[in-house]
Write a protein that binds this DNA or RNA. Sequence first.
DNA 1: GTCTATACAAGGATAGAC
DNA 2: GTCTATCCTTGTATAGAC
Lengths: 207, 207
Amino acid sequence: MSTREKILHTALELINDKGYVHVGVREIGRALKKSPGNISYHFSKKEDILIALLEQYRETNSALYEDYFAGQPSAHRFLELMKGIFDSQFRYRGVFIGNQFVKEEIQSGNRYDYRATYQQRLSGFTRIFRELRESKHLQVSDEDIEFLVAHIALVGRFWIYEATLFDKSPNQESTVKHYLDLLARQISLFATPLGAQDISEFRVSQE
Amino acid sequence: MSTREKILHTALELINDKGYVHVGVREIGRALKKSPGNISYHFSKKEDILIALLEQYRETNSALYEDYFAGQPSAHRFLELMKGIFDSQFRYRGVFIGNQFVKEEIQSGNRYDYRATYQQRLSGFTRIFRELRESKHLQVSDEDIEFLVAHIALVGRFWIYEATLFDKSPNQESTVKHYLDLLARQISLFATPLGAQDISEFRVSQE
DNA sequence: GTCTATACAAGGATAGAC
DNA sequence: GTCTATCCTTGTATAGAC
């Protein structure tokens, strides 16, 4: 593992544990028995570490979406996709939580074009729901789809904040299960009998 | 207005505008033509300013809940309550957004017992939905209520994060309207004809 | 190209004079 | 209640060794 990769690995662990603002450049160096200046050599700004982690996260997710779109649309496979995304968000939780910076980076769009990725994700979800309508898993109007997409955009982004709000280090399995369950119940409200069966099968498979 | 109140007022403005981490003690002092040491005299730690603002926010909200529970339960009045809460969250948006600290304060529970307040709010929502069932506005099982409460807890806390994610200073009226609308649509899914009429009346009144 | 040592600036916190 | 002076930590930049 290169020094750069080691830094990212250690930084993510520390950030998940203590939060971005409380992890100093000196501390990352100490954990790796390197000098703080060496960290600066690989990442000239502390924020650059966060950018690199965000990039890793985005690549993981893009692969998950590609997998989904390569197969047949179904409520079951959609929930599997969401489980993959939630697991990956959990792994990178420290990157999202409690730092003004990610927000600023998103707003400035200088280095990490989050806005474009986000728009892509939203149209991805719109496409997913339209396909689930065509495949008779969901019975939804265009307005319903808009509503569901807005819902997923919010829940899918902020569940991890809520999960770590009262519990500093929650259990990944039960936490992801809880929020997936909420999501499953939400789309159940628009499911056809076929979709409902698919969803209940998924929920059983997660027991 | 006492110096203490002036500090809180100015700090909230600056924090809403620039974010907590980017507002320095020296800067608050400069805006008030006071020395930084004087700010420290009134609030020995920068975090204490945030605590005091959280306290103001909580008091505003408690009054709103009391008003609601003093009257008759209805879907319309419930949405009015939520509008009051959303407006107040908007006013204090900088306090919630982009700082690790509020989270830590919640977790430690040293000075600001957020956990207890939060639990109160959750049982408040459970009560509200049970009453709306009794008054024939909603047709919900106990499981549905649990689901709706979980939903409101998440959306009601994090909509303001989402709203400021891509837009640094969003328009209060249209933003609150958008998220209230999502909320109205969500409870519409469980509404009786009476409740549905109540909800659509509310939506019309917000045009 | 990789790393260490070190200097500098900015911001929160504190002691003590008035 | 208010101010000045000072300390300490932390992000950042750079000179120079290997």
